[in-house]
Simulated scan of single mutants.
Amino acid sequence: MSQTYELKAEARERVGKGSAREIRRNGKVPAVIYGDKQPPVSITLSYKEIFQRIHGGSFLTTVATIDVDGKKIRVLPKDFQLEPVRDFVYHVDFLRVGKNTMVNVAIPVHFVNEDEAPGLKRGGVLNVVRHEVEFNCPANAIPDAIEIDLTGRDIGDSIHISAVTLPEGVHPVIHDRDFTIATIAGSSAMKPEPEEGEEAGAEEEAEEETETEE
């Protein structure tokens, strides 16, 4: 799980397009905190600070604490809007999280032990079908990534979600089918496997050449 962090914010009473434009002109970002069966709270954030968090990675999968005029609220960023032309941070939505809050998040997939996959050693290609998978998990225990071990994987193998060891409490949102995450496919650069008898024949030929030289 990514390390949590804290953001300073100010509560805002005025809402609407006019108020949001004024906030942006003052170098800040309008945002809202909602959820956990409590009324939404409209806030403003430092543009520089929220920009760095968004572009620093793992923004939507890391629980944060927002200090709103001295009141601290634990949240999970759920969405953010960027101005389409200048890539300017326009607005941020935060979900208030409690002790038992469950959330749906897209978690990246990482592959390990590629050197231990016979299919890749022979020139096969790892075809990643899903670079991220959406999971339902506790808000306080969101994994940074899901690891898939490629040890022993060969040409033609498909890796399905059922073959992946998941952390406790983490479940795929798609649960009605055993979907594919990756496959190992052949390629033109593959090293051909010797057919049965070829290795023995090569050894006999080498022995004959040695005897002839002698």
Results as ranks from 00 to 15, higher is better:
20 A>V: 09
205 E>F: 05
31 A>R: 04
46 S>F: 13
64 A>T: 10
136 N>D: 11
145 A>E: 15
98 G>N: 11
169 G>L: 13
55 H>G: 00
165 T>A: 04
2 S>L: 07
53 R>H: 05
210 T>Y: 01
166 L>S: 12
138 P>L: 15
186 G>F: 00
111 F>D: 05
89 V>W: 00
1 M>D: 06
171 H>F: 01
159 I>P: 03
63 V>T: 15
165 T>W: 06
43 I>K: 03
42 S>I: 11
177 R>C: 02
176 D>T: 11
139 A>Q: 12
169 G>Q: 14
187 S>Q: 11
65 T>P: 02
134 E>H: 01
158 S>W: 00
5 Y>P: 01
6 E>S: 13
162 S>D: 12
8 K>E: 15
16 G>Q: 02
192 P>G: 07
124 G>R: 00
182 A>M: 00
214 E>S: 11
166 L>N: 08
83 E>F: 01
20 A>I: 06
125 V>W: 00
137 C>A: 12
170 V>W: 08
144 D>E: 15
96 R>M: 15
122 R>D: 05
65 T>K: 03
67 D>A: 14
96 R>C: 05
152 G>K: 07
22 E>H: 15
50 I>R: 03
182 A>G: 05
13 E>M: 09
190 M>P: 00
74 R>K: 14
210 T>C: 02
141 A>S: 13
188 S>A: 13
79 D>C: 03
189 A>Q: 14
181 I>H: 01
149 D>F: 02
26 N>L: 13
148 I>L: 03
110 H>D: 06
31 A>G: 10
167 P>E: 14
143 P>G: 12
205 E>G: 11
56 G>Y: 09
197 G>A: 07
119 G>D: 08
197 G>K: 09
12 R>H: 12
10 E>M: 04
130 R>S: 07
64 A>N: 05
49 E>K: 02
193 E>M: 06
161 I>T: 10
170 V>N: 07
127 N>Y: 10
139 A>F: 08
192 P>D: 15
1 M>Y: 07
192 P>C: 03
57 G>W: 11
6 E>D: 12
154 D>T: 04
121 K>I: 11
190 M>I: 10
74 R>T: 15
183 T>E: 02
32 V>P: 01
198 E>V: 11
85 V>M: 15
59 F>G: 03
74 R>V: 04
114 E>N: 04
57 G>V: 08
158 S>C: 02
214 E>V: 10
195 E>R: 07
15 V>K: 12
15 V>Q: 09
147 E>A: 08
121 K>Q: 13
129 V>I: 13
156 G>N: 06
188 S>H: 02
28 K>C: 03
19 S>Q: 07
66 I>C: 02
101 T>P: 11
173 V>F: 09
84 P>T: 13
59 F>K: 03
186 G>V: 06
165 T>D: 15
160 H>G: 14
90 Y>K: 14
200 A>Q: 12
187 S>H: 01
162 S>L: 04
122 R>M: 08
26 N>K: 03
122 R>L: 07
179 F>V: 07
41 V>Y: 05
70 G>L: 05
38 Q>V: 11
113 N>T: 09
57 G>T: 07
189 A>Y: 10
78 K>R: 15
142 I>W: 09
33 I>V: 13
109 V>I: 14
40 P>M: 00
25 R>D: 14
159 I>M: 06
201 G>P: 02
53 R>D: 01
31 A>Q: 06
95 L>K: 09
196 E>N: 12
59 F>M: 05
